[in-house]
């Protein structure tokens, strides 16, 4: 097999990003939408890791970025779940199309 270059990682991250994007647009259930948003973040993280590995050199600034994004992503998810909780208590449904008046 050929050597794994930077472009392999970039393709993987791109595909994961697209999967996450399509899922966030297509899905009816709001939990799935939140999961797909996390996929987007994961894809971006892989992108950063690949660049840090192949182009970073001595300084691994990309890896430090990943740390921040992971933290932010988790907190964002928590806040989203919080909001979803209250919407659910009002609407009694987890269908995104019913949340139009937000």
């Amino acid at each position: 097999m050929a050597e794994i270059t930077l472009y392999h990682y970039l393709v993987i991250s791109l595909l994961l990003f697209i999967i996450g994007l399509v899922g966030s647009i297509m899905c009816k259930n709001i939990i799935k939408v939140l999961i797909c948003i996390e996929f987007i973040l994961a894809g971006v993280n892989i992108n950063f890791a690949a660049f840090a590995n192949y182009c970073g050199g001595a300084e691994g600034d990309g890896f430090v970025m990943i740390l921040f994004y992971t933290g932010i992503g988790a907190v964002e998810l928590a806040v989203a779940i919080y909001i979803f909780y209250f919407m659910y208590s009002k609407k009694q449904t987890d269908n995104v199309y019913q949340y139009g008046d937000l």
Binding site: Y9, I12, N45, I46, A49, A50, A52, N53, G60, F63, I66, L67, T70
Partner: peptide, 11 residues
């Protein structure tokens, strides 16, 4: 695991 492969175990 992909992160590990990229060389950063911490991540």
């Amino acid at each position: 695991i992909l992160f590990w492969l990229s060389g950063s175990e911490y991540n």
